[in-house]
């Protein structure tokens, strides 16, 4: 599903004349197979989020290549990458990233609108998904009117609505209490089991990492273990 070859990334800091280069990822080679749940663990600041942002196309790698589903995404233009994201990848963020002026329903509907689906089809899908993640009664609630767990369910529903083959999750339970965390992790496992969706989950929590089939650990920007697919 995901292949990463000799990926390196550094950030340029400071002003023009006195630039400081901050190397974050060094020579990363790893793989995520179809249908896997892979956890990426590592201490805070080890470069996990940067790795995920590179895979997502939010930033571009200094060196190396990334393939998703056989497509060399690291070569795609910004617009093409956006289309690719819309069609193939679902996202779950630590801070949910819901649009506050839109209701739960509208947030979940957004990817369908962007794809250009017609209204009837949208309604069917959104309603079905809301029932599935247990938000049937919260259609017209705004994010600010929902609990953290509920918000994360909205964001999971949004990630699922275009039926992606891959979901990228950066600390999906980082803002939730342990009870809610367990619920969310259960949903993830269920989606993997029932729909065969591949998950790449970033966490600094060993317990969360246990949900995955496999763990890749990163330290100081290098893969310490678990880079290869099973």
């Amino acid at each position: 599903m995901i292949q990463i070859r000799e990926l390196s990334h550094h950030f340029k800091l400071g002003k023009k004349d006195q630039k400081v280069i901050l190397p974050v990822l060094k020579d990363i080679t790893m793989e995520v197979g179809k249908g896997e749940i892979v956890s990426v663990v590592g201490k805070s600041g080890s470069g996990k989020s940067t790795l995920l942002n590179l895979i997502s196309g939010f930033i571009r790698p200094t060196e190396g290549d990334i393939w998703i589903d056989g497509v060399q995404v690291s070569e795609l233009s910004e617009a093409k990458f956006a289309d690719f994201r819309l069609k193939h990848i679902g996202f779950i963020f630590q801070s949910f990233q819901l649009i506050p002026s839109m209701t739960a329903y509208q947030n979940i509907e957004l990817p369908l609108i962007l794809k250009g689906e017609d209204e009837k089809k949208r309604q069917e899908k959104v309603i079905r998904l809301m029932e599935k993640v247990g938000l049937g009664d919260f259609k017209d609630h705004y994010p600010s009117e929902l609990s953290g767990g509920q918000q994360q369910r909205v964001s999971i529903a949004r990630a699922l609505v275009l039926e992606p083959t891959l979901i990228l999750a950066d600390e999906p339970t980082g803002s939730l209490d342990s009870e809610t965390e367990a619920e969310i992790l259960e949903i993830i496992q269920k989606l993997n089991r029932e729909l065969g969706i591949t998950f790449l989950i970033i966490t600094h929590d060993e317990e969360v990492a246990q949900t995955g089939h496999r763990t890749i650990s990163i330290k100081d920007g290098r893969v310490m273990k678990g880079g290869a697919a099973i």
Binding site: L86, F91, P111
Partner: peptide
Amino acid sequence: IMKAIGAN
């Protein structure tokens, strides 16, 4: 957010 989830 829209760009992140794939808005062109």
